[in-house]
Amino acid sequence: TRVETATETAWISLVTALHLVLGLSAVLGLLLLRKQFPAHYRRLRHALW
């Protein structure tokens, strides 16, 4: 049972790390898009919101 708990903890930390990386890359991508293609960014924002 101890090994299972350790594996679960590892999976949870892995998933958390993946979510963090995905969130950060999404934010960075949006910032880059905003900087380089303001028109595209505006259109995207209108489409999303």
Rank of each mutant, 00 (worst) to 15 (best):
R2Y: 14
L24P: 04
L32V: 04
W11Y: 13
L20K: 09
T5F: 05
A47R: 14
V27S: 04
F37Y: 13
Y41D: 05
V3F: 05
L22P: 11
H40S: 09
L33Y: 10
T1D: 06
L14Y: 04
L30P: 08
A47V: 12
L48D: 07
W49G: 01
A6S: 15
V15C: 06
V3G: 02
L18S: 00
H19T: 13
I12S: 06
A39S: 13
G29A: 15
V21S: 15
L14Q: 03
L31R: 05
H46W: 00
S25Y: 00
H40D: 06
L31T: 08
L33F: 13
Q36W: 05
L30N: 01
L31E: 05
R2K: 14
L30T: 08
I12A: 09
L31I: 08
S13A: 15
V27W: 08
T7V: 13
E4W: 10
L32A: 00
T5H: 07
L22C: 14
A47I: 12
Q36I: 00
A39G: 14
L31S: 07
R45H: 06
V21A: 15
V3I: 14
A6R: 12
A39C: 01
Y41F: 15
L18M: 09
R43K: 13
R43H: 07
T9S: 13
L24N: 02
I12T: 11
T16A: 13
A47L: 11
L18N: 04
S25H: 00
R45S: 07
R43T: 11
K35H: 14
K35R: 07
E4G: 08
S25C: 15
L14D: 08
A26N: 04
A39N: 15
A10M: 03
R42C: 09
T16M: 01
R34F: 06
A26G: 12
Y41N: 04
R45C: 08
T9D: 06
A17Q: 00
F37N: 02
A17I: 09
L44Y: 09
A10Y: 09
L24A: 05
R2V: 14
L30S: 09
V3C: 05
L18C: 09
L28T: 02
K35F: 04
L24D: 04
T7I: 10
L18A: 00
W49P: 00
L48A: 08
A10W: 09
V27G: 06
L44K: 02
S13V: 15
W49V: 01
L20S: 09
T16L: 07
V15L: 12
G23M: 14
E4N: 12
H46R: 12
G29V: 12
A26F: 14
W49H: 07
A17K: 03
L20H: 06
A17Y: 06
W49Y: 05
A26E: 00
H40E: 13
L18R: 07
L20A: 12
P38K: 03
L33C: 13
H40I: 02
V3L: 11
T5W: 09
L22N: 04
